[in-house]
Amino acid sequence: MRDSGQPATEAQTIRLEAGRAVPAPKAFNFWSRLRSNPLALISLGMFVGIVVLAVFGPAVYPMSATRPDYASINAFPSADHFLGTDNLGRDTLARLLQGMRVSLIVAVYVETLNIFLGALLGLLAGFYGGLLDVLVTRLADMLFAFPGLLLAILVAAAFGPSVTERFGGIGRLLLVAGSLSLVSWPLMARLVRSRVLVLREQEFVTASRSLGGNRPWIMIQHLLPNILGMVLVASTLDIASVVINEAVLSLLGLGIQPPDPSIGKMITEAMPFLEANGWQVFFPSAALMAIVLTVSFLGDGLRDVADPSAST
């Protein structure tokens, strides 16, 4: 059928349209399908668990995340410190709970920016083509090659002090991370655009167009559901790099400000002590992996649940 090259017949079109018609699933439908998808259910449970830990953990767990104890530096896990202590004798569990909160905030924030800028521009560029496509792809090429580090340094220096004063350390962190997503959205845009380039030539789109469907409607009705999977996958994968990038930024003094932790920061702080106390690298790394795996499988699950035709 791919090779037919001929306009689809009306009958085909109708069939295709029917096959592709995926209106938003009704709520009860969604939950019943979710219940029958164990992986999605488990991932959802774990994800909720992680969020609950990050949100309420620091308030419930009594140890301080920032108070040092120079008598027990780099201690192994014990009854006093369930996950041991870091290189200044601070309780690792307390830091991890606090750090997860910071890392999740940053990840959600950067991904929102990324999806908003990248997916939206990629969709528009791929679909409308022409001058818009040229502008968006050139802009994307340019920003992709741009030294994000330099931009982050500039932004942190120019706006950092006033933002820190008003919104605290996390405000500055979001500012710097935001400046990084300015150079990272092109990747998402390029992925989406190339997918749209293929999709818009497919029968259900050409057919819908020949039937006089207006363009925004085609985009929302046909293209959006089809790129959703890719956007979800790309952004869940991105979360790991956002968390790590935050740590790399802090190596330059542009990430979270000490003594506050983030997952990436905990890993970079513990790395030099890998051989002295590997636990301190292991715990935050495991947390990072857990977040990435959970979010990825959750993304898979949600996609399957939202689109019945996806599960085979």
Binding site: I244, I267, L288, V292, L293
Partner: peptide
């Protein structure tokens, strides 16, 4: 694959 992906490269190097 995801685990390989989510290990920060400086940890993998270590």
């Amino acid at each position: 694959m995801l685990m390989l992906y989510s290990i920060p490269s400086f940890v993998l190097i270590g």
